[in-house]
């Protein structure tokens, strides 16, 4: 564990908590893509199945439990409790265009052709594109609530910090995991456009609005 990975995990946790609190406090999931939240929940479920098979550390297990429970709670809030505020008309990204190629690729490119490893690989590839429905929804509505932009900022930052962690580990430990690195790069690059808008608009107190 190094400081970049710890900062990444904290950033990820902050993002998940921000979203959960935003929906719970405002009792509304306006502007939130339920499809992305379903993808994130499946990312965690498929990646953390080893929660029941191997114990790595208290930190590792507790973070996995927190991620899985918060993401499932978020999906529940969006599709059940605050369903009336769910903006389905703008959450129209065809997720099958993500899940099918990702599913196929995880069978072709993986570290080991075993069920757990293929599920882990599927989860890594899926996570790299899971934010697309959310970004697509923002491009369709042409704007995002400021709290939602903070959620996206920390969510995008987390994998960017992991990338630094992997550079650090390659340099000092000679460790590298090409699957995680390539997927992490794709994932972080997808946020670049958002990061630019976040820094130039939201951090200057303006509302994030895309040229519709």
């Amino acid at each position: 564990m190094n400081i970049f990975r710890l900062a990444g995990d904290v950033s990820h946790l902050v993002a998940i908590i921000i979203l959960l609190l935003k929906i719970w406090k405002t009792r509304s999931c306006a502007g939130i893509s339920g499809k992305s939240q379903i993808l994130f929940a499946s990312v965690f479920v498929t990646r953390y199945l080893d929660l029941f098979t191997i114990f790595i550390s208290l930190y590792n297990s507790s973070m996995k439990i927190i991620y899985i429970s918060c993401s499932i709670a978020t999906v529940y809030l969006v599709y059940f409790k605050f369903k009336a505020t769910y903006d389905g008309n703008h959450d129209t990204f065809r997720v099958e265009f993500l899940v099918v190629p990702v599913g196929g690729l995880s069978f072709l490119v993986n570290h080991d052709f075993s069920p757990m490893e293929i599920l882990w690989t599927f989860s890594i590839y899926l996570e790299s594109v899971a934010i697309l429905p959310q970004l697509f929804m923002i491009s369709k509505t042409g704007e995002a609530e400021t709290i939602t932009t903070h959620y996206l900022f920390f969510l995008g930052l987390y994998r960017g910090l992991y990338l630094i962690n992997w550079i650090w580990r390659y340099y000092f430990e000679g460790f590298f995991d090409l699957i995680a690195i390539v997927a992490g790069l794709v994932q972080t690059v997808l946020y670049c456009d958002f990061f630019y808008l976040y820094v130039t608009k939201v951090l200057k107190g303006k509302k994030l609005s895309l040229p519709a």
Binding site: E117, Y162, G174, F175, D177
Partner: peptide
Amino acid sequence: TSEERDKDEL
């Protein structure tokens, strides 16, 4: 350098 998966990473 060795390319492998780290099960410790989240």
